[in-house]
């Protein structure tokens, strides 16, 4: 949208607002949902943003990119939503990284690595996830795992090696200290 149009919007042109809405509403909705992971709330927040764009249109700077302007609103709205949720539920306890043992010199980006690992474990095929968890969290050896799941030891070895390969790729590490 060129700045002539934006100027028209600022002075109250409803047609331009409609155009802006059609160009950006769906994108704002998808973007917010990607951050907050709730479709219903994302829809409502996206609506709020466009109501606000109209009611405070005087604050728009016609010399700046409208896409950037909408992006900043969308991001701030999504972040505020998450911040409220944190206060509400006070789930700070889920924020500790103690599940993963890291030595001090490897502590750089420990949180990021830990979350990335958790995401990848989350997305493993069911059986692989199970074998990985039994091995790492329950400290079982391959023979024990094979017996519990009723599969061959070879399968356990294969699955573990695939799991580790996946996780190593996930964090691009030179060493594999927490695997």
């Amino acid at each position: 949208m060129d700045n002539k149009k934006i100027e028209a919007l600022i002075s109250g042109d409803e047609k331009v607002f409609e155009e802006l809405f059609i160009a950006y509403f769906s994108k704002v909705r998808v973007f917010i949902n990607g951050i907050i992971k709730s479709e219903d709330d994302a829809e409502e927040l996206a609506q709020d943003i466009f109501v606000k764009i109209w009611t405070t249109k005087e604050n728009i700077d016609s010399n700046k990119s409208i896409s950037s302007f909408i992006y900043v609103m969308a991001r701030n709205t999504a972040f505020n939503y998450l911040k409220h949720k944190v206060v509400e539920r006070n789930y700070m306890e889920s924020f500790d990284t103690s599940d993963y043992i890291v030595t001090p010199e490897e502590n750089f980006f420990a949180t990021e690595k830990a979350i990335l690992l958790e995401m990848h474990i989350n997305k493993m095929p069911v059986q692989r996830k199970k074998i990985y968890k039994l091995s790492r969290e329950e400290d079982m050896n391959n023979g024990e795992i094979a017996e519990i799941l009723g599969v061959s030891k070879k399968t356990v070895e294969n699955q573990l090696s695939l799991a580790l390969k996946d996780l190593r790729n996930a964090v691009n590490l030179f060493n594999t200290f927490f695997l």
Binding site: K37, F79, Y91, F95, E112, K113, I115, L116, K123, A170
Partner: peptide, 26 residues
Amino acid sequence: YFKKLIDLYFINRYSDKTEKRAQLWL
């Protein structure tokens, strides 16, 4: 790590626990 985490989190759904953890980080 930041980029990977944000990209993955954005396009996927994870367990509640993992999503909360990623949101706090964000």
